[in-house]
């Protein structure tokens, strides 16, 4: 299946291991990635906060580029924040033809045009809805038996439900748990899985931000998780890059690795921790990597 692929900014910036892992995983699950390398930042909600029309126009530009990709069945992202920010703009663009025409008038300078109704999905949704859990199960080369994984969704992919297609796909807020079980690992329940990582206020109120991250990490550790997994690179920044700082705000030692969603899938598909960029995390992934490699030896 060919998809118009929007990797986002952070997956090529401060979490390059995410984009790298996705490129390795894609062919293994039958995805052909047509990268939108001329597309712009989704605005992460900040540009919409500044000027709605600007955010809507910038994302309509990306949607138009995705629609112009020959043979692409849909647009795919690998970032919960891109998903949420883009879905917000799409909701307005699709609701009013008059508004859409005004935006398209701006895009006409680039010979681009957004037609209502683009399908834009995070890789998590594509994997479950378009590729399917049965197919994924059949592709597993290394069942992650004994690995205890705590899911962390990121707000933008779970709320608000009416904007994010939960009417048609009511189980989207359980996909991580479902995938974790299908690849043989154990999904760990803890209070923070559907809460906020705190990243959006890291520059405005570090205490509010890292207290949130720290509590969720602590809860996952207390629930016995070996690692967290997230489909959002911005959550990853607060949960992994900032984890040593977060310790100070919750007055406890943390030290739990945080995997990107495609990395976890890659491990189950037989890819090695190193090629999936697991060496490029702030919190060491060595123990998880060792557990996984040991599994391979016994398989």
């Amino acid at each position: 299946m060919k998809v118009a692929y929007w990797p986002g900014c952070v997956s090529r910036g401060f979490t390059p291991e995410l984009h790298g892992a996705m490129e390795l995983v894609a062919p293994k699950v039958g995805l052909e990635l047509a990268e939108l390398d001329r597309a712009n930042c989704c605005g992460a909600g900040v540009i919409a906060e500044h000027n709605q029309e600007l955010a809507d126009t910038l994302n309509a530009r990306t949607f138009a580029m995705a629609q112009a990709q020959d043979g692409a069945e849909l647009m795919m992202n690998i970032c919960s924040t891109c998903q949420g920010a883009q879905s917000e703009c799409q909701e307005r663009l699709d609701a009013s033809s008059e508004y859409r025409e005004m935006i398209n008038d701006t895009l006409a300078a680039e010979n681009l045009r957004y037609e209502k109704g683009v399908t834009n999905k995070n890789f998590l949704w594509v994997l479950v809805e378009d590729i399917g859990l049965d197919k994924l199960g059949s592709l597993v080369k290394r069942r992650l038996d004994g690995l205890r994984i705590a899911p962390f969704y990121g707000c933008y992919i779970i709320r608000p439900t009416d904007r994010l297609g939960y009417h048609a796909h009511p189980e989207r807020d359980t996909y991580l748990e479902q995938v974790i079980e299908v690849i043989g690992a154990e999904s760990v329940a803890y209070t923070g899985s559907h809460k906020c990582c705190g990243f959006p206020v890291i520059t405005m109120n570090k205490k509010t931000s890292l207290t949130q991250a720290g509590r969720h990490l602590g809860d996952a550790i207390d629930a016995g998780a070996d690692a967290l997994v997230t489909p959002c690179p911005l959550c990853h920044l607060n949960l992994d890059l900032q984890q040593p700082e977060a310790q100070k705000f919750v007055n406890r030692d943390l030290g739990i690795p945080v995997l990107h969603f495609p990395q976890l899938i890659g491990l189950a598909l037989g890819l090695e921790p190193k090629e999936l960029g697991m060496g490029k995390h702030v919190v060491s992934t060595k123990q998880v990597a060792a557990k996984v490699t040991a599994l391979a030896a016994t398989a």
């Binding site: 900014c9 952070v10 930042c41 900040v46 500044h50």
Partner: peptide
């Protein structure tokens, strides 16, 4: 004093200059 104004301005300006986020 909370950097709210500057954060928004910095973000918006970065995308105007580079198109993607220069973290």
């Amino acid at each position: 004093r909370n950097n709210g104004y500057r954060h928004e301005k910095a973000f918006v300006n970065i995308i105007e200059k580079w198109g993607t986020l220069h973290e």
